[in-house]
């Protein structure tokens, strides 16, 4: 492949993934709203509602507050959306392998995950509103809080794969190709279940959903760090939120549910890609229901100090227990 072809493939892949991320993300936001509505005994908006919302916001005027710093204020939403799409380039979708990738991209994804949040923090501080400032402070605290359990969950899997003698364990392609459940024994499986639970609890914080939405907290901060955003800028944050939903779900799928239909049932290559893609969407649906919709409708919002103690003490401890179980499993397996 010549250099030009490589570049073309990367650009084409990026555009395709961006479109996929936004469309699928908005669709799953609609699915989440429908699930929540049904559980709350409401009819709820139609599935296309997030598309209508995004289109309407795109047509609305941008208002920049008087005491905001305009270039940061306008730049933050673009940064948030761009970084969210970048992460998607490293994640496998069904049997379609990531556009970019290589050794150690798992670590890169962990770092990239903080960028949309940081963009929101920067935008919040640049808004010049007390609500946005408080929201931005909270967002930073939450960012630091959920990093520990998330890192434990991700590293435990990569470590276990490397102990099983698989080369390049920190590459998502490797992790997706070698389901970790096939490597571990029963003790490790229990550990992995705990880690799966942790990832399910980190997802709402990453996506700033109830009960971990202290940074936006509608009834306290009136939208927190997004309080001053409107029109196109807000639409960009909304799209970033949609892409992040897909990213978090795809990450959970890649780490814990990486199986493909084509590896069980023999089928023609073209059919296999399509079938795996549909299967991937079904897995994303599962993740969205359990770690976003169900959690957000079943409990009250936590205070910021409660969020920190939940992540550092309870989920941190649970993470270490899960890690320990995975390590014991590795020892039992005799490696």
């Amino acid at each position: 492949m010549t250099l030009i072809e490589t570049i073309l493939a990367a650009v084409g892949g990026t555009v395709a993934m961006a479109v996929f991320g936004i469309v699928a993300g908005l669709f799953f936001l609609g699915v989440d709203r429908k699930f929540a509505a049904l559980m709350q005994a409401r009819i709820g908006p139609p599935l296309r509602q997030p598309f209508i919302d995004a289109a309407k916001l795109m047509r609305k005027e941008n208002i920049v507050p008087e005491n905001a710093i305009p270039w940061i204020f306008n730049g933050a939403p673009i940064l948030a959306l761009a970084s969210a799409i970048t992460i998607l380039l490293y994640l496998p979708v069904g049997s379609i392998m990531p556009v970019l990738g290589g050794a150690g991209d798992l670590i890169l994804v962990m770092y990239l995950l903080t960028i949309p949040a940081l963009a929101m923090v920067v935008g919040g501080f640049a808004s010049g509103s007390p609500y946005a400032t408080v929201g931005a402070q909270r967002e930073m605290v939450i960012l630091i809080a959920y990093e520990l359990p998330l890192a434990i969950a991700i590293i435990a899997i990569a470590w276990r794969l490397s102990m099983a003698g698989i080369a390049d364990p920190f590459s998502l392609t490797t992790i997706a190709a070698n389901p970790v459940w096939g490597v571990v024994g029963p003790v490790g499986a229990v550990g992995l279940l705990i880690l799966l639970g942790i990832l399910a609890w980190v997802t709402p914080a990453e996506l700033s959903r109830i009960p971990f939405d202290a940074q936006e907290a509608e009834t306290e901060l009136a939208g927190g760090l997004l309080v001053e955003y409107s029109g196109k800028n807000f639409a960009l944050f909304y799209l970033a939120q949609a892409v992040k939903t897909i990213v978090m779900a795809a990450l959970a799928v890649a780490l814990f549910l990486p199986w493909n239909l084509s590896s069980f049932v023999a089928m023609a290559p073209a059919v296999a890609v399509a079938a795996d893609f549909v299967f991937f969407l079904a897995k994303v649906l599962l993740v969205v229901f359990f770690s976003i919709s169900l959690i957000r409708v079943s409990m009250a919002r936590f205070r910021i100090n409660q969020i920190v103690s939940i992540y550092w003490v309870w989920l941190g401890l649970a993470g270490f227990v899960g890690l320990a179980l995975v390590m014991i499993d590795a020892i039992l397996a005799g490696v």
Binding site: F35, A37, L38, M39, Q40, A41, R42, I43, G44, L294, V297, S298, M299
Partner: peptide
């Protein structure tokens, strides 16, 4: 709330 929610998921909206 969780059992109540899962039950409601399969009922008609109110």
């Amino acid at each position: 709330m969780i059992p109540e929610l899962l039950r409601q998921l399969f009922r008609t909206p109110a």
